[in-house]
Design a protein around this nucleic acid. Structure first.
Length: 724
DNA sequence: GCATCCCATGTACCT
DNA sequence: ACAGGTACATGGGATGCG
């Protein structure tokens, strides 16, 4: 018997076996084999029917075993049912047998039939989350004998998985599975920060790529939009009749019906999107949460990931999983819906004045805390109230990961901002944050098989109640509420110190039994009117900016927060706010600050009109969310992407499109913008950029009566529309 | 041919 | 189809006018 310690990076089922791949402590890659026979459960219509079914199936082909088991079938019922478990001899015959059984008149319901085999295997046999650190014993034929979890939950660094990033370049502008007639002309490869581009004859490029993969021997292959990218690669390789190996095992390419995941066995292809934002550590958090392999964890949406977790937990508890039938909600009268189906509470921001000495008090993870503290779960929130149960599903699933997120959030502060450890903590806590927020988001979601809209509404309601409680408490103590949104409240009272605000937060926390803290202490705070509203009297939610007591600037929802806003506009807006607020007291903002700000606007526009702004400061950067052929409108970033495609560059779903506005009013959309990477002129559409400056100025200054007429064009001119 | 209104589309941001 | 939302910019069709 052999022993190894390592981290699992992939599991898949082949025939009657599970393959488990791991990276060991001493840097080796190991593949182990475990037997796996899929099964499903069926509920007979009656006890007699059970006997008949048992008899019928006993001798059936592909049936390996039949036995009776007691299982929970309903989330909210203690009762167990006597079910027939049908074990199938092979995954290949699973669907066939299932179809046969479905048509049998004695069958009332079927269970565990829409989980992936790998989920079933992990849930019922392996019982260890993928990416876990484990100690394994295996025989000389690499058959898994035993597995033991090693706790590495306090580890900050990721497991020693290795990854290679790549992207392909072709001449085709539009991709579909049937349009692979254009050769691959280049292939970018990145491994541990080192980048190289493979170019030349297609056959050489592909062979080079294969040798790169073999030489670096990565566990993960990361690329944008894997289905399309790998699909394209596959078709080209097949067309050229090359025998290129990208996985760790030999496959006969001509016999594969599709490339993923078979072509890559022994490695995992990941989507660049998730990988880029959350890193390997984020992926590990998601895998372990969802009991999913990294490949699935990076691909699956929030709902599927959460469902996977729920199913795992229920299988562990002796439940069987009903098929996800999709849309279901309680049938209710319109009045009931109107009464209950309300979102979070927002207290309208007080606009039109500069608020001074404002405290922002924030709940820490309000929704998860409500779920856990109040036991709000799919099965506990009923039309007649909330049932108290200490093992309810949603709180159970939430609790551990809530604690874990807070742990990394706190731990992060111990490291230098931007350091490797800091980034790992940040990525982990962000990945966990997303899971936690979505646990709330999916609680009433119609695609969630356990979803209960009453649960979702109850969480919202309790969130509103908590906010109202805080509002009452602070108002009773003489504070002024200037704005509140869901889990944060902005209050002020003259001469209150930071310490006093902090003490108040602590007091409230104790009073309402939810953690709340002073998030920011503002010297000046300006809440903004709704941009869409022509009167300027309506308040905008989630849009404000301010100057903190420590001199830092803070903004929400406005231009400087947006990734697609050109650097020049961002820098302008930041400087504008600094100028505006560069005074001692709020009254001076209206006069001195505003006057200086107007001055700065003029200066900026002069610079722009005189063509003195370097072109790279004016780049607008947007993500292409769909492949080009799916777009109905030629929006500016789509135009830029089409231009790139015409120049022979491959653009794909998920790509960042950098472009400059050269002639916003041109009749032909493609002429309005130019892709930045191929643009070698200093010319830009100064009128368009002047509008953007004025928009940014208006956001900051509208409160003080700013009007853009003085600077040229009338308000609300739509520049992308105007003829040139 | 052009101005204006209005809706659909699409991205980013927030919880 | 597959967390829930809001805010905002833009394109482009419909409409009306000269």
């Amino acid at each position: 018997m052999n022993t190894a310690v390592g981290w699992i990076f992939d599991i898949y089922i082949q025939g009657e076996q599970a393959a488990i791949w791991l990276r060991t402590e001493n840097g080796k890659v190991l593949k182990l084999i475990d037997a796996y026979f899929p099964n499903f459960y069926l509920l007979p219509k009656s006890e007699d029917d059970g006997k008949i079914l048992c008899h019928l199936l006993q001798g059936s082909t592909n049936v390996r075993n039949i036995d009776f088991e007691e299982k929970h079938i309903m989330l909210n019922e203690e009762r167990k049912e006597k079910l027939l478990r049908v074990t199938v001899d092979n995954v290949c015959s699973y669907k066939k047998l299932l179809a046969k059984v479905k048509s049998m008149p004695q069958v009332k319901a079927l269970y565990n039939i829409d989980l992936l085999h790998v989920q079933q295997y992990v849930s019922t046999k392996l019982k260890v989350a993928p990416t876990s650190k484990v100690e394994l014993q295996y025989n000389n034929e690499h058959y898994l004998h035993s597995i033991r979890l090693i706790d590495d939950s306090e580890e900050i660094a990721p497991p020693p998985f290795t990854s290679l990033l790549f992207d392909i370049q072709t001449n085709s502008s539009v991709w579909s599975p049937y349009q692979h007639h254009n050769p691959i002309i280049g292939l970018e490869v990145k491994y541990e920060g080192e980048e190289q581009t493979l170019q030349g004859d297609e056959q050489d490029v592909l062979n080079d790529f294969s040798s790169n993969v073999r030489a670096y021997d990565p566990d993960f292959l990361v690329c944008p939009d894997p289905d399309n990218t790998v699909g394209y690669l596959f078709e080209r390789v097949r067309k050229l009749q090359l025998n290129i190996r990208l996985g760790r095992e030999d496959v006969d390419l001509q016999r594969l019906s599709k490339p993923l995941p078979y072509w890559f066995h022994g490695r995992v292809v990941l989507d660049f999107g998730y990988f880029n934002t959350f890193g390997i550590v984020g992926l590990v958090e998601r895998s372990r949460f969802g009991m999913l392999t990294p490949g699935l964890a990076s691909k699956w949406t929030a709902n599927r990931t959460i469902e996977s977790k729920n199913c795992y937990e229920l299988l562990r508890r002796g439940y069987v999983i009903p098929k996800n039938e999709g849309y279901y909600e309680y049938i209710r009268t319109l009045k009931e819906v109107a009464d209950r189906d309300r979102g979070s509470l927002i207290l309208a921001p007080r606009i039109g004045v500069v608020h001074e000495n404002v405290a922002e008090l924030d709940f820490e993870s309000q929704y998860p805390n409500l779920i856990v503290n109040d036991g709000l779960s799919y099965e506990t929130v009923t039309p007649s109230g909330v049932i108290q149960r200490d093992d309810s599903l949603l709180p159970f699933v939430t609790k551990h990961f809530l604690k874990r997120r807070l742990w990394f959030k706190r731990l992060r502060k111990k490291f230098v901002r931007g350091s490797q450890e800091w980034r790992w903590c940040e990525q982990r806590q962000l990945a966990l944050k997303m899971i936690l927020v979505c646990l709330y988001g999916t609680s009433g979601c119609c695609w969630n098989r356990f979803g209960n809209v009453l649960c979702f509404e109850e969480i919202n309601q309790r969130s509103r109640q908590a906010l109202v409680k805080i509002k009452d408490i602070v108002q009773k103590r003489g504070f002024d509420v200037v704005y509140a949104d869901t889990d944060s409240i902005f209050i002020k009272k003259e001469d209150t110190t930071k310490r006093e605000y902090e003490k108040l937060a602590t007091r409230i926390s104790q009073h309402i039994d939810l953690p709340i803290a002073l998030a920011h202490h503002y010297k000046f705070l300006l809440l903004l009117p709704l941009e869409m509203d022509p009167s300027g009297h309506m308040e905008a939610q989630k849009r404000y900016f301010g100057l903190l007591m420590n001199g830092e600037l803070l903004a929400r929802g406005i231009e400087i927060r947006r990734h697609d806003c050109p650097r020049f506009i961002k820098a302008f807006q930041i400087q504008l706010i600094k100028t505006l607020f560069d005074v001692e007291v709020a009254e001076d903002v209206d006069q001195i600050g505003y006057r200086r700000a107007l001055n700065y606007v003029s200066k900026t526009i002069d610079k722009l009109v005189d063509r003195k702004v370097p072109i790279d400061e004016l780049v607008i950067s947007k993500i292409l969310r769909k492949s080009l052929s799916e777009y109905k409108l030629t929006a500016p970033h789509v135009s830029a992407a089409i231009n790139l495609a015409h120049m022979g560059k491959t653009v794909r779903k998920g790509d960042v499109i950098d472009f400059v506005v050269v002639n916003a009013g041109h009749r032909v959309p493609l002429r309005r913008v130019a892709p930045f990477e191929s643009y070698n002129s200093n010319f830009y559409d100064w009128q368009k950029y002047r509008e953007m400056v004025l928009d940014a100025a208006e956001t900051v200054l509208s409160t003080f009566g700013f009007s853009r007429e003085k600077y040229g064009l009338p308000p609300q001119t739509r520049l992308f529309h105007r003829a040139s």
